[in-house]
């Protein structure tokens, strides 16, 4: 498979993402500078990694969403392309209008750098097909603005269409207020587009792909990606 990771000024998680993708898919992703106006020919998957693009000026992701490469990514997505946004990448996808809602400052006003547990709400997406239905996995959150918000109409639509892919939960899988550390509406940690090919999530599954470094709880997400493109 051919994955491209977009690098903005202030992105800092591109190498972890590249290592995770290479480890599982066996092919090394290319790193694409945000000033490019086209994606490499034959790109299967675009990844917007975590970081602090443009120093989070104005709003997290707002500046990066205006970058030249984002026009190419919007066109790629419109043609059914696969796009994954993690943390700041999720914020950028939302600011670019590729996913709905907004990401507000965490309800506690604190930057949250800690483990979290995620409930997989659907396993028929290109990013979650290697999880068991109803699976719960441990991941890491590291963000100041991950409090997903949507108007009641947006929330109702997302829920009705089954586009909430991941929710914050307890280690046992209970979707509780205490497990919802950043204050997101309905414990939303990750949502997808109607065709399920665009996924945005705040936590960092790329942190957990190596048994020697914090375990392999995030591995199924990358195995899902590998499986999606093995048959493509």
């Amino acid at each position: 498979m051919k994955a491209g990771i977009i690098l903005f000024p202030g992105t800092n998680r591109e190498r972890d993402m590249a290592l995770a993708l290479a480890r599982v898919t066996g092919s090394k992703p290319s790193i694409i500078w945000h000033g490019e106006s086209e994606l490499p020919a034959g790109t299967d998957l675009v990844v917007l990694p975590g970081g602090f693009s443009y120093g989070d000026y104005l709003r997290c992701g707002a500046m990066a969403a205006q970058s030249p490469i984002m026009r190419a990514i919007a066109a790629f997505a419109a043609k059914g392309g696969h796009v994954l946004g993690v943390c700041n990448g999720f914020q950028i996808l939302i600011e670019a209008g590729l996913l709905p809602g907004a990401l507000l400052k965490n309800a506690s006003l604190r930057f949250l750098s800690m483990d979290c547990h995620l409930k997989v709400e659907r396993t028929d997406t290109p990013y979650t097909n290697h999880f068991q239905p109803g699976a719960v996995f441990r991941s890491t959150m590291a963000h100041g603005d991950g409090n997903w918000f949507g108007t009641p109409e947006t929330v109702a639509q997302l829920e009705a269409e089954g586009r909430v892919v991941l929710r914050y939960c307890t280690p046992e899988g209970a979707v509780t207020e205490a497990a919802n550390r950043n204050g997101s509406v309905n414990n939303i940690a990750g949502i997808c587009s109607p065709n399920r090919r665009i996924l945005g999530l705040m936590p960092h599954p790329e942190n957990q792909v190596d048994p020697l470094i914090d375990g392999t709880d995030g591995l199924p997400m990358f195995q899902s990606i590998a499986a999606t493109f093995a048959t493509a």
Binding site: L58, R59, A62
Partner: peptide, 8 residues
Amino acid sequence: KLLANMVI
């Protein structure tokens, strides 16, 4: 277009 996020 940019300065405000009309969702919030």
